[in-house]
Design a protein around this nucleic acid. Structure first.
Ligand SMILES: [Mn+2]
Ligand SMILES: [Mn+2]
Ligand SMILES: [Zn+2]
Ligand SMILES: [Zn+2]
Lengths: 141, 141
DNA sequence: TTGCTTAATGCAATTTGGTTGCAAATATAC
DNA sequence: GTATATTTGCAACCAAATTGCATTAAGCAA
């Protein structure tokens, strides 16, 4: 996985640093979403918050990570798994296990409801409980 | 319009105060979205930020206003124009004039893509340029 | 391999948006 | 009008994001 991270960094013309490798491996090894605070906890001793922040920022700018806001307005990041033809960012995020799945484009019939309003960005976040977590917590909670 | 505001307050069992009337009238008189900061600017001398905040909060709890986050994670509010049967919050917001229009439910065929993942909340924000603003700024920008 | 140059990092400080405790002011019911 | 409960202003606080700057480290060239 560190190999994969190294390659990605090279492909994007980024210097290979411990911070960047560490951060990227978190994402490469998981389907989950992470906030800056999550990373701070993971790397509390090893890396400073500002450096983690700057790595997230860099990855976002390079399109390696996606960034969006949860219901409370906190930025959350996930590996960008969207197809290049994607017309925006659509995700389902499990409130329990934090797993994020990318969803396909909104149907064009729906977008036609915009009429002559021109779409530039679009962001859809559906939150709920994933199949796994529903089975884990049968009736409880 | 102050009449309309007064009625809304009464209907919701809220005391009629200058702050609440002022805030509500901002929304009743506009199709736009406003942040707390927007209101602070409008009422800089007349009302305190914390009171504006609490009014927004109250209106949101009563379902009079909608609250969602823009791309940068800042909370924005608009008059709630969604139908009661709405399965989530979908909006188009013009980046230029800030006008917000509510969009209908996502089509059920699309939601079926979630499979057994259970939706609890959903939030769609499409940003772009409204028809009006496109015509105002023909080729410029 | 060794320096040189530039970019990345750590640390501390700052900004921004959101939120709260509390005393004073105000709205409503009596 | 007065009593009571609510709302407000102010100041303080909090969380997340962001920045300036001196130090350190990565990559390249000698
Ligand atoms: Mn998290
Ligand atoms: Mn605004
Ligand atoms: Zn889950
Ligand atoms: Zn517009």
């Amino acid at each position: 996985m560190i190999q994969e991270a190294t390659t990605l960094l090279k492909e994007n013309g980024l210097k290979i640093t411990q911070n960047r490798l560490d951060v990227l491996c978190v994402f490469l090894g998981s389907e989950k979403a992470f906030t800056l605070l999550d990373l701070e906890k993971i790397f509390s001793l090893k890396h400073d918050r500002s450096s983690l922040f700057r790595s997230l920022q860099t990855y976002y700018e390079k399109g390696i990570l996606e960034k969006f806001c949860n219901a409370t307005g906190t930025a959350i990041y996930t590996l960008n798994r969207h197809k290049p033809d994607c017309n925006g960012k659509s995700h389902f995020k499990c409130k329990d296990c934090e797993t994020v799945v990318s969803l396909p484009n909104l149907p064009t019939e729906y977008l036609q409801l915009l009429g002559n309003n021109k779409m530039e960005t679009m962001n859809l976040l559906i939150e709920g409980t994933c199949e796994n977590c529903q089975n884990k917590n049968p009736e409880t909670l």
